[in-house]
C-alpha cells in the first residue's frame, strides 16, 4: 500500500479502479548527462580561474585547458539537450521563436554565448594571444556562473515536480560545478603537491556543502505538501533509495573521506579516487533527484 495513503485511515480503502497509465519518466538520463556535463563545463572555468590566482606559477596549464575542457563538456551538454528533444531537428525554433519567460530558452542563449567565448578563448590559446585571453576571462566567468545556475531556475519553473523548487537548488548547482571542476583538474595533468592540495580542498568542501544541503532538504526540513513527502519517500525508502544513497555516498561522503585521508597521509592516488568517486556520485545523485518527482501521480 502507498505509505501515505496508509497514514490516512479514512482513505485506506480508496483505490483507483480505472485510469490511464502513469506517464512515467519523460526526462531521463539524457537530462542527467546534460546537467552533469554542464557542471564540468562551467566548473573548470570557475575553479580554474581561482587556481590561476592561487598558483600563478602554473598559470599556463589552466590557461590552456580551461577553455578546451569547458568547450568539450558544453558541447556534450548541448548534444544531450538536443538528443532529448522529441523533435530534435526543430532545435533552431529556440532562436527563431524565443520565449523569454522560459528559463530553457534563456539557458539556450546563455550556453550559446558561453560556447562563443570559449571558442574565442581556445583560439587565443592556439594563437598564443594572452591579451585576448585575459580580456575574455571575466565575461566568460560571468557566463559560466549564469550557465551554472540557470538550471535551478528551470527546475523551479517545472512546478509540477515537487522538491525541484527548493531555494537551495541554486547553491546545489554551484557546488556541483565546483566539485566537478576540481575533480576534473585533479584527474588531469601533472601538478605540484600544493596545487593538488588546493583542488582537494575545493573538492572536499564542495562535497561537504552538497551533503549538508541534501541532508537539510531531504531529512531535516519539513516538506510543504503531501506530494513533496511522497517524493522524499521515493528517494529515501522507495524505488530510488539505492540510486540516491549511492549518489550521496560516492558523490559526497567518499570524496570527503578520501580527501581527508590523502591530505593527512600525502597520498595522491587517494585524491584521484576521490575525484572519480565524486564525478560518478554526482551523476547518480542528480539522476535520482531528476527521476523522483516524475514518479508522482499528478491527477
Amino acid at each position: 500500500m502507498d505509505p501515505l495513503v496508509a497514514d490516512v485511515p479514512t482513505l485506506q480503502s480508496a483505490r483507483v479502479t480505472l485510469d490511464v497509465l502513469h506517464t512515467g519518466v519523460m526526462w531521463g538520463w539524457y537530462v542527467t548527462m546534460n546537467m552533469w556535463a554542464k557542471s564540468v563545463g562551467t566548473g573548470v572555468l570557475l575553479v580554474g580561474a581561482y587556481m590561476m590566482r592561487r598558483h600563478a606559477e602554473h598559470q599556463a596549464f589552466y590557461r590552456r585547458w580551461m577553455p578546451i575542457i569547458g568547450f568539450v563538456f558544453i558541447q556534450l551538454t548541448l548534444l544531450f539537450t538536443v538528443l532529448d528533444l522529441h523533435q530534435m531537428f526543430r532545435f533552431w525554433h529556440m532562436f527563431t521563436h524565443p520565449h523569454f519567460t522560459s528559463s530553457i530558452n534563456v539557458g539556450a542563449w546563455l550556453l550559446t554565448a558561453y560556447t562563443g567565448v570559449l571558442t574565442l578563448m581556445s583560439y587565443a590559446v592556439w594563437k598564443k594571444r594572452d591579451a585576448l585571453w585575459d580580456r575574455l576571462l571575466w565575461p566568460t566567468l560571468v557566463l559560466a556562473f549564469f550557465a551554472t545556475i540557470y538550471t535551478a531556475a528551470l527546475l523551479g519553473q517545472a512546478s509540477a515536480r515537487e522538491v525541484w523548487q527548493t531555494p537551495a537548488e541554486v547553491a546545489q548547482m554551484l557546488v556541483a560545478a565546483t566539485l566537478a571542476g576540481s575533480a576534473t583538474f585533479l584527474l588531469f595533468g601533472e601538478k605540484k603537491p600544493e596545487e593538488s592540495l588546493s583542488l582537494a580542498w575545493i573538492l572536499g568542501l564542495s562535497a561537504l556543502v552538497a551533503l549538508v544541503i541534501f541532508g537539510a532538504e531531504v531529512i531535516f526540513a519539513p516538506q510543504k505538501s503531501e506530494e513533496a513527502e511522497y517524493v522524499i519517500h521515493t528517494l529515501l525508502s522507495g524505488d530510488l533509495r539505492t540510486l540516491f544513497l549511492a549518489g550521496l555516498v560516492f558523490g559526497f561522503v567518499v570524496p570527503g573521506v578520501l580527501v581527508t585521508l590523502s591530505v593527512r597521509a600525502k597520498q595522491p592516488v587517494a585524491l584521484k579516487l576521490a575525484a572519480v568517486s565524486g564525478l560518478v556520485g554526482l551523476w547518480l545523485a542528480k539522476h535520482a533527484w531528476l527521476l523522483a518527482p516524475q514518479h508522482l501521480p499528478l491527477s
Partner: peptide, 25 residues
C-alpha cells in the same frame, strides 16, 4: 512549433499534457 522538449509536462501540475506518439510533439 513544438520541439518536443517535454518541459510543459514537467510544469503542468495536473498531468494534462501528453507527448503525441505520432507527431512527437
Amino acid at each position: 512549433r513544438c520541439i518536443g522538449c517535454a518541459a510543459c509536462m514537467m510544469a503542468c501540475p495536473y498531468g494534462a499534457i501528453y507527448m503525441d506518439p505520432e507527431s512527437n510533439t
